[in-house]
Design a protein around this nucleic acid. Structure first.
Length: 770
DNA sequence: TACCAGAGGAG
DNA sequence: AAATCCTCTGGTA
């Protein structure tokens, strides 16, 4: 029993050796593969194969030349498989071959060597890891920051905290005060020693996976620079190699050889939809518990003049950073083990890759098994071109505005995946010559081969079948721990299946096909239209629908039991006319709902739970007070059916705001900086607040979420916007929060109920503003 | 007042 | 570095 944690290659005696880093039952194992060689495929121009072969033979670093039969999109071809002596020579050889007159194209020259080996050898990263009790450690650092953002060339690390899943908690520092009693505290001599001690601890504890919160872009780069300053090698690798900072787009990735480092910050941003992603927020989301927090502005002061109480707080805070990061990791890592196993990516990769990359890794693996040539990545010019062309997506029904009772919801189970499978939608089956008579011809005029299953439908079918199998095992599983793994696996399979459609339309995709993407969306529209047209025949009325769902009410029945019976016959009728892999499902019955506009509505379910879609309550860029008040008003309208109660709620809140005593945490607005700070044509409040904060020493960049308040001082809203760190309790613009936050959010609901504007003024603005 | 840029949600 | 559809705000002319 062993599990593959990491892989790379080294050069020994001028030969490339693939190294596979395993965790075994007894410890660690590094397997070395020295007989594997890199190769690329060369597509000849017409009748050029033999001449091309002769020319390539003469080139340096070519070890072997074979003619092989491969599939390229929709046809079989003979291509040259060129085996090289060493992966480092691929970048040189590729353009030399590309320039040859008889060469049409070079393929698969950019697949990293170790990953190539994993694919070809059929290895599955992280397979079996549950059985091995992986040793997982987290660490976090506190840094001396007397001037705001710390600078690694000047400001030392003052604390390193450490926690692992085998019971060791440590805080390494080099200062202490009288009367401290913390069992995890380890006071050393200086910064150099805490760095050394940290490295030692990771090694002595035999750690398999290192986790951090923002380690890619803060802790590791900072630690590396400080270690270099002290001339300590940051040799955390299992082969004692130093931590390597890799460039990944705009950000960095910290790679520890053989002991994968996983940064939970980007992972959490991908998995959760939160207003912001501080460690405290994420910890609350996962465990429901509060985490110790201190104001970072206080840190340098405490370090310089430590009182027993404050210094203890600082150390406790440091410890909780490491232990909560570990707790988050233990909760989320199983998902990433599964993603790694499904996509065959190393966990270092899969924990940092997006949907597009994951789908692509899976397809490359499948293409290898089916002897299909992998398309090259598109050039920047092609990507630009693809970005300029768009296509039509899902259909949204204009809602019947206002309150409705006894609402039924139906939706298509996995609409797009089921369309891809039933219509065999794939670049290789697109408009094929053998079967133009497609009874299911897509409304865009495209048709798909009926004889040969495409790569993507086949891959998707594999995911769907595997998920059905996992769900079956899940039903039979008695052990809750194994049950959780199966649940996570079926979720991961579902997410991956659902991202296949998006992949077709992704401009950087190797298997990009706008025709496929638009055919899928067009067929989706066809099926939902078909469904909507059938609705009146059964005495129902559609009140709303979006892409794959239909909300309707029953005009002929009034009892729940009769309504549900009635809907069954509707369902049977629709499903009898659908392709086999497709199904419309009954999704729910809602006693009451309010529909405002497209993509904005709220429902009460049969357990009296409020479900809100698209409204301010759901948005991070609205103040809590507006979101919370809107939610209360929704409950008054839908549960209590009492508009007067709703009016009272609004009046009371408006009064509270006007008193000037509303806590700041009810008033903060979170907005992300989605582009580079210099790229804005118009700068909204969050950008102007961020700019002011940058001048005062805080760091904001693309991707940061700005938490700000509209204060009293300034002319425009943007002038008044200040990042929360600089706002005093009570300094807020009450008129803004009444007129631009609370009232718009609640008046929209009441307007949808048909109250006239005059009535609403009576309820809200005039009485309260006077 | 009309328009557009920007953000974030739904499915 | 997965897609499109849609609403709404605040800046700008």
């Amino acid at each position: 029993m062993k599990t593959l944690l990491d892989a790379d290659y080294t050069t020994q005696n001028e030969k490339a050796v693939v190294r596979l880093f395993y965790k075994t039952e007894s410890g660690r194992e590094i397997e070395e593969i020295s007989d594997f060689k890199p190769y690329i495929y060369v597509l000849p121009r017409e009748h050029g194969l033999e001449r091309l072969k002769k020319r390539i033979e003469k080139l340096n670093s070519v070890e072997k030349l074979e003619t092989v039969q491969m599939r390229d999109t929709d046809h079989e071809i003979e291509v040259l498989k060129v085996t090289l002596d060493h992966p480092k020579n691929v970048p040189d050889l590729r353009p030399q071959i590309k320039e040859l007159e008889e060469c049409k194209e070079v393929r698969e020259a950019h697949i990293p060597f170790a990953e190539r080996y994993i694919i070809d050898a059929g290895l599955v990263p992280m397979d079996g890891c549950e059985a091995l009790d992986l040793r997982i450690a987290s660490f976090d650092m506190e840094v001396y920051n007397p001037r705001g953002e710390p600078k690694a060339d000047i400001d030392p690390i003052i604390i390193i905290s450490y926690a692992d899943n085998h019971g060791l908690d440590k805080v390494f520092t080099y200062k202490t005060v009288e009367g401290l009693d913390l069992d995890y505290l380890d006071v050393l001599k200086n910064e150099e020693d805490i760095i050394k001690k940290f490295i030692e601890t990771i090694k002595e504890r035999g750690i398999d996976i290192i986790v951090t919160y923002n380690g890619d872009n803060f802790d590791f780069p900072y630690l590396k620079e400080r270690a270099e300053k002290h001339k300590i090698p940051l040799s955390l690798g299992v082969d004692d190699s130093p931590v390597k900072m890799e460039k990944r787009g705009m950000n960095l990735g910290a790679r520890v050889r053989g002991r994968p480092h996983i940064d939970m910050y980007p992972v959490c941003r991908q998995i959760f939809n939160l207003s912001k992603y501080t460690l405290e927020d994420v910890y609350l989301e996962i465990t429901g518990g509060e985490k110790k927090d201190i104001r970072v502005g206080e840190m340098a002061g405490i370090w310089d003049n430590p009182t027993t109480e404050k210094f203890k707080e600082l150390l406790e805070y440091a410890m909780s950073d490491a232990s909560s990061t570990l707790e988050i990791a233990l909760d989320i890592l199983p998902l990433h083990y599964e993603i790694s196993r499904i996509t065959k990516e190393l966990i270092y990769q899969s924990s940092r890759s997006g949907s597009g990359q994951r789908v692509e890794s899976l397809l490359i693996k499948k293409a290898f098994e089916k002897k299909i040539l992998v398309p090259n990545k598109p050039s920047d010019r092609v990507v630009d071109e693809r970005q300029r062309t768009t296509y039509a997506g899902g259909y949204v029904v204009e809602p019947k505005k206002g309150i409705h009772d006894n609402i039924l919801l139906f939706d298509f189970r996995s609409l797009y995946p089921s369309i891809i499978i039933s219509h065999n939608i794939d670049p290789s089956t697109l408009d094929c010559e053998c079967c133009p008579e497609d009874p299911y011809r897509s409304p865009t005029g495209h048709y798909f081969c009926k004889k040969k299953v495409g790569l993507i439908p086949e891959t998707l079918e594999g995911l769907v079948q595997r998920r059905i199998d996992v769900k079956k095992r899940l039903r039979e599983e008695k052990d809750p721990k194994r049950g959780r793994f199966l649940e996570v696996e079926q979720q991961a399979l579902k997410v991956l299946a659902n991202s296949m459609y998006g992949y077709f339309g992704f401009p950087r995709a190797r298997w990009y096909s706008k025709e496929c993407a638009e055919s899928i969306a067009a067929l989706g529209r066809k099926y939902i239209h078909q469904t909507i047209e059938t609705v009146p025949n059964f005495g129902f009325e559609v009140i709303y629908g979006d892409t794959d769902s239909v909300y309707m009410i029953d005009k002929s029945e009034s009892k729940r039991k009769d309504i549900l019976k009635h809907s069954k016959s509707f369902l049977d009728r629709i499903n009898s006319e659908l392709p086999e892999a497709m199904e419309l499902e009954f999704e729910g019955f809602y006693p009451r709902g309010i529909f405002i506009t497209k993509k904005r509505y709220a429902l009460i379910d049969e357990k009296d739970m409020l479900i809100v879609k698209g409204l301010e309550t759901r948005r991070r860029d609205w103040a809590n007070i507006a979101k919370y008040t809107q939610e209360k008003v929704l409950n008054a309208l839908l549960k209590d059916k009492d508009p007067n109660k709703a009016a009272k709620i609004v009046k009371d809140v408006v009064q509270e705001i006007k008193k000037g005593k509303m806590p700041l945490e009810e008033l903060t607005i979170n907005t992300q900086i989605t582009r580079g700070m210099g790229e804005y044509k118009t700068e909204g409040p969050h950008i102007q607040a961020a700019k002011k904060a940058i001048k005062k020493g805080l760091e904001f960049k693309q991707g940061s979420i700005v938490t700000y308040v509209i204060t009293k001082k300034g002319a425009s809203i943007s002038d008044k916007a200040q990042v929360i760190d600089f706002v005093e309790e009570g300094d807020y613009d009450a008129d803004y929060y009444v007129n631009n936050q609370v009232l718009p959010a609640v008046l929209r609901l009441l307007e949808a109920l048909g109250y006239s504007e005059d009535e609403l003024k009576g309820l809200g603005r005039q009485t309260t503003l006077s």
